[in-house]
Design a protein around this nucleic acid. Structure first.
Lengths: 210, 210
DNA sequence: CGGTTCCGAAACTGATAAGTACCATATCGC
DNA sequence: GCGATATGGTACTTATCAGTTTCGGAACCG
């Protein structure tokens, strides 16, 4: 697991004396521009000049905050991750299906051009930097599998599904297939797809009595 | 679907007259070297000099056959695809589990450093060239899902699984989760993993009576 | 004010790598 | 043999781009 909220952005360094203050709003502008460019031309196509132009920022302004291009991109990915929030509290509808459907929130669907593009670019990042793969896996995949496993385990405890259900394995299905769908198939991850997964694969697999 | 056997390799051009013949064995040597380099340093790290050195070939020899670096790489990927063969005939063991397990062949496991590396590099290629994603999907994913769907459908016809089983959806599970596992999680796709998938997800999902 | 640090913009530097040109040599058809 | 085209090797050209520097100006602090 990865520490929450860490980023590669330089904290304002040792201020010997006064001087113009760093404009904190430029940080977000630059990160947003980075995500835009990432979605449009991908990781390989992204250049610092492109980002600077998009953000109407000087490159010095960027390099004052992030020492390398990769620092910038990783921070941008972390920023985007904050939009993919998990529910602060697990849904508790009384039925497993209700809980699983309740986990799907509009913010987490991947059906816009930009989100789709950024996710595709993330595939490149992951492929290029194996170390990053772990981070992305930790911040995107693991939490999802974890909450699903939680609601499944609860359903097993209250007897809704048999004790033989392989919760540990089945809880990986949705995150895996959603990732595959967006990264390789490049198709949207919308409500019908996810609910179809729940009804046609996950619930039948868990309900099977062996 | 993609036409079988097409490649970007230049056919020997208009032979006005005699001259030394092109050595066809260099084609495979160079493609093999390309896959080696791809597995070791990935798509972004691959340079034509690296490939030439590995193949003990001159760059002119390479560029005489492939006009661009991407042509070469795409051809190498196509060559590798030929190793991932499907069984020429569907297994028919009498049980669904037997058939599914019978589809797993040693050549299709992804548990070597080289295969793992090439698959990771393919992720980069796919991310960079969306058009290629379709090709990879067509030649790798679709055939697998298709043969699985075939054996599942047969099991449904003979009453081994209920008619309500969502064969179309479940047949995608194995290919998706295997691809996700190797590309994102970078873990081996070996027999225990695939059989676990069959026993813990696929068969329970298909056997569930609804 | 004045020193300091910021800002956007643009020019510059240095490294990397695709693709080409050329070499000496080898092998083909005639 | 002879011309044509192949081979591995190397040097070259050219473009791109990360990262640095410079510049005119703006904002902060005392």
């Amino acid at each position: 697991m990865n520490e929450e909220g860490q980023d590669a952005r330089d904290a304002t360094p040792v201020r010997s004396r006064g001087g113009r203050k760093r404009d904190p709003t430029r940080d977000d502008d630059i990160l947003d521009a980075t995500l835009d460019v990432l979605a449009e031309v991908g990781y390989a196509g992204l250049t610092t000049d492109l980002v600077a132009a998009r953000a109407q920022a000087g490159k010095a302004t960027m390099y004052r905050r992030w020492h390398t291009k990769d620092d910038l991109i990783l921070d941008a990915v972390r920023k985007m991750k904050r939009d993919f929030t998990l529910p602060d509290r697990l849904p508790d509808t009384g039925t497993l299906r209700g809980d699983l459907v309740g986990l799907i929130r509009d913010e987490n669907l991947i059906d816009g051009d930009r989100t789709l593009g950024v996710m595709a670019a993330m595939t490149e990042v992951v492929a290029r930097h194996p170390g990053i793969a772990d981070t992305v896996h930790d911040i995107v995949h693991c939490p999802w599998a974890a909450v699903q496993e939680a609601v499944m385990r609860r359903a097993r405890d209250r007897g809704e599904i048999p004790p033989s259900a392989r919760v540990e394995t089945v809880s990986q299905v949705m995150a895996s297939m959603a990732a595959y769908r967006v990264m390789i198939q490049r198709r949207v991850v919308d409500r019908p797809f996810l609910e179809g997964l729940i009804d046609d694969v996950i619930l039948p697999a868990l309900h099977a009595d062996r």
